[in-house]
Design a protein around this nucleic acid. Structure first.
Lengths: 233, 233
DNA sequence: GTTCATATTTGTCAAAACGCAAATTCGAAA
DNA sequence: TTTCGAATTTGCGTTTTGACAAATATGAAC
């Protein structure tokens, strides 16, 4: 276990408003671990042994269907909680969590949740607020899938990723981790072929630049117009 | 405010494991109200003033999109919590809640949540477990919308309603509240026309019987086969 | 530099599902 | 009983999107 300083986590949302002293205590019970790109943090249906905070990197949360289809539920960015099954009384993780790049993850044994929630009510409250936001986001996704066309959903997914994780470059906003057409199709409920066609068209129109596993948004506002459902600019 | 006896709620899941004495206390702070069919309990984006338990009836929870599309998020059955924005730190309700039949609803002022959660930790834990289950169900819906065809989704929705709220009749299992083709289309992300066609076909094939605002499942196992994705029997 | 698995692009065709329109049925209210 | 709005059914043409197939590009590993 490496050295963990309270300043590591003091500024990230789940710990907002907690006394320094408590942060130190909490950290003393945490384990820090590096995950190389592609490594699995936890697996769907596995017994929920820990809960996690991502200190650095990006984690892909994926559900697998009985017939093998994958659906990407969300990407976790640094500073976010994930795998918090215990907080919700779940005995098993409902999805896979896989490092999308090199990651640093902090974890606590799941058995600690009750104690932690009781001793650090601020942390518990912050956690439940996160859950509330995610529940809403998930509902939003249901609405999107139920009412919007593929083109809108793909535009939206790319915009969100750019906002959430984008890094500014000379060309525009680059999504900060390797992402394939297949990944985007699994976020939006379509096929990699359709995503490829859309990206090709958008590239021709100058809205994005893309290479293998890389997408840069150059004309975000135009993408946003497509996400709104307008057919042309 | 009518007379409320602890036995009213002692057996329903959110209150499992709570001391009788606490139930009485909690009830003394609750308000009971009847809602006739179609009456709104709370509205999307309205400030979250209360949290609720449905004692009798069925409540439809509906999201409205900016361009007026409706998506039915879930049906609440009796004994279930709803409108628990406070538990998740949300300031506003994320959807409309409307009585789908004559209902009896118990409510507490939202300002009481923190006190209630602290004083009755069992109740809080039960609530968060409910949230966990709903989050999973919502994720399931995302997966369904992303990977299954309309036919499967409609079959699934009807099966779930029949299981959740069905009443046994001589013909089969009747969904216990008035429900239109439009409602089902708003649960499954399709149009009322497509739902109508599917129900007609299934009626011809003898899987269901349906009248205006009424659906009876006669051959659940065959519907289940369709929900699984098989094209014929 | 060569090799090879992986990612991407693109074409063609077919199926699924929607949109629009119109007819019809039903049931509640007058 | 009559009326009228709401719910439902159904036909038809169109659009969207998926499925299949094949070619091509890319970058990491050797």
């Amino acid at each position: 276990m490496s050295l963990l300083d309270a300043s590591l986590i003091a500024d990230i949302p789940p710990f907002q408003g907690m006394k320094r002293e408590y942060l130190v205590e909490l950290l003393s019970k945490a384990k820090s671990e590096r995950y190389e790109n592609g490594r699995t943090v936890f697996t769907q249906d596995e017994e929920a042994h820990s809960f996690f905070i991502l200190l650095d990197g990006h984690i892909r949360v994926v559900r697998i269907t009985p017939d093998g289809d994958q659906v990407i539920a969300r990407y976790i960015s640094s500073g976010e909680l994930f795998g918090i099954a215990q907080a919700l009384g779940l005995e098993r993780y409902p999805a896979n969590a896989v490092a999308a790049v090199e990651c640093v993850v902090l974890s606590w044994p799941g058995t600690l949740w009750n104690m932690v929630a009781e001793k650090y009510p601020t942390f518990a409250t912050n956690t439940y607020r996160t859950v509330g936001i995610r529940l809403q986001e998930t509902q939003d996704k249901v609405v999107e899938l139920a009412t919007e066309r593929v083109e809108q959903r793909v535009a939206n997914a790319i915009l969100k990723l750019a906002n959430q994780t984008g890094r500014k470059t000379e060309d525009g906003i680059l999504i900060d981790f390797p992402i394939t057409r297949q990944d985007i199709s699994e976020m939006t409920g379509t096929t990699l072929h359709t995503v490829s066609r859309l990206l090709s068209a958008w590239e021709t129109a100058g809205l994005v630049k893309s290479e293998r596993k890389k997408i840069t948004v150059t004309e975000g506002h135009k993408l946003a117009v497509i996400a709104e459902g307008k057919r042309e600019l």
